[in-house]
């Protein structure tokens, strides 16, 4: 396997693996938020903001993986 192929595999793995956790996490966040909204819809505005914050924190992990993937794939690191 030449270095380029290894680099590309690394880039793909970086984003692929990094997407698993946040995918599950965002699902859980949305699940909880929707259940809460369904139970007391009068708080849905507040819940939405909090849900976005939660989603964003979770999503950040995936984005980090994506950035690392770009950095590897674009030959910036390594």
């Amino acid at each position: 396997m030449d270095a380029n192929a290894a680099r590309l595999i690394g880039a793909a793995l970086a984003i692929g693996l990094a997407a698993i956790g946040p995918g599950i996490g965002i699902g859980l966040v949305a699940n909880g938020a929707l259940q809460a909204m369904g139970r007391n819809p009068e708080f849905s505005g507040q819940l939405q903001t909090t849900m976005f914050i939660g989603i964003v924190f979770t999503e950040a992990l995936g984005i980090f993986g994506l950035v690392i993937s770009f950095l590897i794939g674009f030959k910036i690191f390594g």
Binding site: V56, E59, A60, I63, F64, L66, V67, F70
Partner: peptide, 10 residues
């Protein structure tokens, strides 16, 4: 930084 950068760049 990387949230904004990563999202928009991607």
């Amino acid at each position: 930084t990387f949230r904004l950068f990563g999202n928009i760049f991607a």
